[in-house]
């Protein structure tokens, strides 16, 4: 079924909206949650909470692209769960690796997160991503949005793993420079 119709069911408070969302996007959502949490049980909870999140937020929201809307909820919930579960201990999986890699861009230090800082960082990231060539942007987001391993990015985009690794390294370096220029480091 088309997204538009599923969203209409959410608006009509028709629970078939959840069933149809599951049918259409569960595999995609599980991939995101598993990449982040590396645990089927935790991923199940995140995905399950995603539907609740969608139910509670549509309306008032009316997503044009349901797939990315749900994916975004799953990603946020999974990262939240990840932080809760692994606040103290070291942990394997792609999130840990992604965080390690991003430590090259910003120091792995505590920050007093203010809403203004967050907004500014979001603005800057949008500008930065818009400045990237399409291929580089896709590789970067597959790694740090979807948290896919390099092997998967390589296979899905049809590039060699070496190319993906090099592109990620260059993008991180470039992001670090941009953050410095903007005074956000």
């Amino acid at each position: 079924m088309e997204d538009e119709k599923i969203v209409a069911l959410y608006w009509a408070r028709d629970e078939r909206a959840i069933t149809l969302s599951k049918e259409k996007y569960e595999h995609y959502l599980y991939t995101i949650a598993l990449n982040i949490l590396a645990s089927l049980q935790d991923a199940e909870e995140s995905v399950s909470d995603t539907y609740v999140g969608a139910w509670n937020s549509i309306p008032p929201h009316k997503p044009v692209v349901l797939r990315t809307y749900l994916g975004r909820i799953t990603r946020n919930l999974s990262l939240k769960r990840y932080r809760y579960l692994h606040a103290e201990k070291r942990y394997g999986g792609e999130t840990e690796l992604a965080l390690d890699e991003l430590s090259e861009v910003v120091a792995d230090t505590e920050t007093a997160e203010s809403e203004a800082e967050r907004r500014e960082l979001i603005r800057m990231i949008q500008v930065f991503l818009a400045s990237l060539p399409s291929d580089q942007r896709m590789i970067f987001l597959m790694r740090y949005w979807h948290m896919h391993p390099v092997a998967v990015i390589s296979k899905e985009l049809g590039y060699s793993q070496s190319k993906v690794k090099m592109a990620l390294k260059r993008t991180r370096d470039s992001l670090r420079d941009s953050l410095k220029e903007e005074g956000l480091l």
């Binding site: 044009v64 692209v65 990315t68 809307y69 994916g71 975004r72 990603r75 946020n76 990262l79 932080r83 999130t95 992604a98 965080l99 991003l102 430590s103 861009v105 910003v106 120091a107 792995d108 230090t109 505590e110 920050t111 997160e113 800082e117 967050r118 960082l121 979001i122 990231i125 949008q126 991503l129 399409s134 942007r137 896709m138 987001l141 597959m142 740090y144 949005w145 979807h146």
Partner: peptide, 22 residues
Amino acid sequence: MKKNELLLDVIGEVKDEYLQEI
């Protein structure tokens, strides 16, 4: 929250069109 965690977090706010592009 650590800075790298914040960065990972805000990357989640990217435009839909970039995700669709993927």
